[in-house]
């Protein structure tokens, strides 16, 4: 009996070693792939930062320099003094902030209703909303443009920039999925504890939905901040441009102000980096929703 056990142990040790070495190989392969991906992600940002501190002026051709030979903040000074950059940043911040808040509020309310309230036609309405996501944005762009600019006469206003994005079906879907994971007994308990339906939403649902809201806020803020085409279509004056539309003005017919463009890009990227790191804890919780049993 003892001999058999020893043989078993030896066999299992060999099997364990084999499994361990297999694991090591896979770990090395995954580290190599991930390292490559980190480089692919970081190099453009590194290049952007390095170039922003080189005053290379206006040029049609431009060779990258990996290790900067000179250091200058002239590009930043030019970016802030020669353009309406401050106004563009304020515009972007305002537009992205309002759209984010609006999406948090409306998508959460709608998500809560679809996830937890019982009303006639609930599933049908939800599926119709989801079906609208299949329509390509390009197909609705012109009708929306005609409505906003020609029908409502809102061209070159904040409302025009914000209107189509105040709440999106994608965000409603996200919040519905998140709120479906919350225990319904919490809502029952709050009802018995004397809460109105809105108070349940405000005092119970929203506080425990922070991870879902964080994901929604980051995605919405970043996508709105980076939005170029729609603000470009509906704004005319420099004072109404968002930062992304403003940055495009650094590209001229024959030349590009690479230094200024990169300085502006660094400034434009900063709020997103700050936002991500300040909400990172919630964000990481949020994107693993449903991955493990609570």
């Amino acid at each position: 009996m003892a001999e058999i056990r020893t043989a078993d142990t030896q066999m299992s040790t060999a099997a364990l070693q084999k499994r361990e070495s297999k694991r090591t190989v896979w770990r090395v392969i995954s580290y190599v792939i991930l390292s490559f991906w980190v480089l692919v992600t970081i190099i453009p940002m590194y290049w952007m930062v390095v170039t922003s501190f080189r005053d290379i002026g206006f040029s049609a051709t431009f060779t990258p320099e990996w290790f900067p030979s000179s250091f200058s903040i002239a590009t930043y000074i030019r970016f802030f003094t020669k353009t309406d950059a401050v106004q563009w940043l304020i515009n972007s911040l305002f537009v992205s902030g309002v759209i984010t808040l609006s999406n948090v509020l409306f998508a959460s309310l709608a998500g809560y209703a679809f996830a937890k309230l019982r009303f006639p036609g609930r599933n049908m309405i939800f599926w119709v909303l989801l079906a609208t996501m299949m329509i390509p944005a390009q197909a609705t762009l012109i009708p929306i443009y005609i409505m906003v600019v020609n029908v409502f006469n809102l061209a070159d206003t904040y409302i025009a920039v914000m209107l189509p994005f105040l709440v999106t079906v994608g965000n409603i879907f996200l919040m519905k999925q998140y709120m479906s994971t919350l225990p319904s007994t919490l809502i029952d308990a709050a009802r018995i504890d004397g809460c109105s339906e809105f108070k349940i939403f405000r005092k119970v649902i929203m506080p425990i939905s922070k991870p879902g809201v964080a994901v929604l806020a980051i995605f919405t803020f970043v996508s709105t901040w980076n939005e170029f085409f729609w603000p470009f279509l509906v704004t005319n004056s420099s004072g109404m441009r968002t930062i992304q539309v403003g940055l495009a003005t650094f590209k001229f017919a024959e030349t590009v102000d690479y230094g200024g463009l990169m300085a502006g890009s660094v400034i434009a990227a900063l709020p997103m980096i700050v936002l991500f790191f300040s909400l990172q804890r919630y964000f990481l919780q949020g994107i693993t929703i449903g991955a493990v049993k609570g």
């Binding site: 225990p183 308990a189 506080p207």
Partner: peptide
């Protein structure tokens, strides 16, 4: 009558404590 006006209290299977 709404639950809050029935003068009842309920203990749930999963306790339903407000986690925050």
């Amino acid at each position: 009558v709404h639950p809050k006006d029935r003068d009842i209290a309920m203990v749930f299977q999963d306790y339903a404590l407000y986690p925050h």
